[in-house]
Amino acid sequence: MIVDVNVNLSRWPFRRLPHDETSRLVKKLQQCGVSQAWAGSFDGVLHRDIADVNRRLSEDCRRHGDGLLLPVGSVNPSLPDWEEDVRRCAEDHRMKVIRLHPNYHGYGFDSDLCDQLLAEAQRFRLIVQVALKMEDVRTNHPLMVVPTVDATPLAALVKRHPNVPLIVMNNYGSVRGDAAAQLAEAGNVYFENSHAEQVGALEKLTKDVPLERLLFGSHFPFFNLEASLFKFRESALGGAITEAIQHKNAEELLGDR
C-alpha cells in the first residue's frame, strides 16, 4: 500500500512523457502498488483558465482508476479572483489538497499573496502542496527559464500559519538537513522523497526530518516511478518506517478531511 502525494495528470508542456495518458498512468501506478495518488495537473503550471484545469482534473480523477486518483487543485494567486478557485476546489470539487507553483506564477514565500492564500486554505481546511521546481533549471527551455523557488522565507511563513499542513515538493537541495528540521519544527511542514538524492538517500532524509513528516512522492510521470520506490531498497529503514513514509503519514494527514 503506497500513497503517492506527488503525481501530475495531463501534458508536460515541453515533451510527451511515456505515461501522460491517464489510463496508462493509472495502470502503472496500480502495477507498482500505489493505492492512492494525489494528482495535480501539469496544466496548472501555465494555463490561465485554471478553473477549467481543475474542473477537467476533477473529472479525470473520477473517470479513471476507481478512486485511485485524489484530485489536487492548482491555485495561482497572481490571477484575478483566485479566491474563487480556492472555493471551487474545496466546495464544488470537494478537493482536500491544493498545489502551488510560486516560481511559474511569479510570487515568493514572502509575498502578501502567500499569506492570503494560506489563510484561505485554512478557512477551507485544505492541505497545501508547494512545488519548489518542476525540472532541473539547467534543462529549462531557453525561452522559459524558471529559477527554483527560494525557500528561505518559508520558515517565517509557516510560523504565521501553524495550522495549515504544507508539503514541500521537488526539493533537490533547496531545503537541506538543518533547515528542513527547523521548518518541521516551525510549522506543520511535510516533505516527500521524489528528489532525495545521494546514496542511501532515505537514511539521510530520516535523520534530517522527523519521521512523521515524511511522505512518499514520485513526481511521476515526469520522473520514472521506480526512482522513489527503489530508494526503499537502497536504504535499510525497516518495516515500520517504510510504512509510515509509504502510506501511514499521508493517511493520517488526510484524516477526517
Partner: peptide, 18 residues
Amino acid sequence: DAGGRSFSSQLAKVYGAE
C-alpha cells in the same frame, strides 16, 4: 554518479523504461 546521486534514481531510468 554515486554517491552524489542515489543508485535508485539512476537505475530507475533503465528499469522504468519500456
